[in-house]
Design a binder for these strands. Sequence first.
DNA 1: ACACATCCGTTGAGAGCTCAACAATGGGCT
DNA 2: AGCCCATTGTTGAGCTCTCAACGGATGTGT
Lengths: 162, 162
Amino acid sequence: MADTRWLSDGEQEVWRAFVTMLGALNDQLDRQLQHDSNMPYTYYEILVVLSQTPDRQMRMSELAGLRGSSRSRLSHAVSRLEEAGWVERRDCPTDKRGSLAVLTDTGFAALAAAAPGHVTAVREKLFDRLTPEQVRVLGEISVAVLEGLDPDKTLPGCQETC
Amino acid sequence: MADTRWLSDGEQEVWRAFVTMLGALNDQLDRQLQHDSNMPYTYYEILVVLSQTPDRQMRMSELAGLRGSSRSRLSHAVSRLEEAGWVERRDCPTDKRGSLAVLTDTGFAALAAAAPGHVTAVREKLFDRLTPEQVRVLGEISVAVLEGLDPDKTLPGCQETC
DNA sequence: ACACATCCGTTGAGAGCTCAACAATGGGCT
DNA sequence: AGCCCATTGTTGAGCTCTCAACGGATGTGT
């Protein structure tokens, strides 16, 4: 461990700026959604995925895997979404172990109400601040980093969902 | 609100990749620290800031502001760090309202032990995956986004700490 | 001096997440 | 069939964060 490759001064600066930016961006987007639509960002993402599904429903396990979330986390989240009336659980017809998460009409309406504010925030905080070239490179970077991350999580494929 | 400027297809792709990358990166770095050194990333950051201070101590308020953390969050965190024996609270001599967070020798040792693993993880997961040009642009992007974020949080200046 | 607004740090309740343990089902192997 | 192990989803405890409220100190204006 004595031969740790420390970061150069330049890398440290980038890392520091990157981490600070990440934290602040997350904070502000999460706060916007929580304040205006009363849902945390992670729940918003769940609703989005369900809404893009043909039947507005999906196996719990698939839903979790698609978003790099643990089963436990998703189960807790869906319980909470159920209390809000935005999602319902249904038994999976083909696998007695399984559950389906189903987006309700109320849930779809809540999502539709939340989306404009969220998208506007993303645009103002992120895309409006960057040149097209920077946006392009940001995409490259994201994909490059994702490919190097542990086993599972490359970009979620669309085979099962589309 | 009817005239929301939605994201283009390209922007959606970048956003999706970016968010996924962010989540996975955070997850893995946090897990590494938690697993190998038994501290969450946010606590690690607190120790780092304190260790870079001349006296290894800082006002609670300044420490919170420097990292974009709420006072409440920092107070809870320092309480926890105190239980671990890594930090101590001391009264501020010039302001009877204030408290100083002081890094203990044990805390410094814990930080020194945690640093190599963390830096290695950052290098492997992030910098080793990127070209020098991508690193440069990532820095640009981070600064650009930071400058556009709400009032307080530009890059923390070094006037008060250095 | 005195009142008033502001700032500092803490506290407690509640929400979301992680982790380990668990019951129930499925699927492969003999 | 029966056995073994993997998979699915849930649960409860513990931790961190947020939010609102608070008591104490500061300093500002009159």
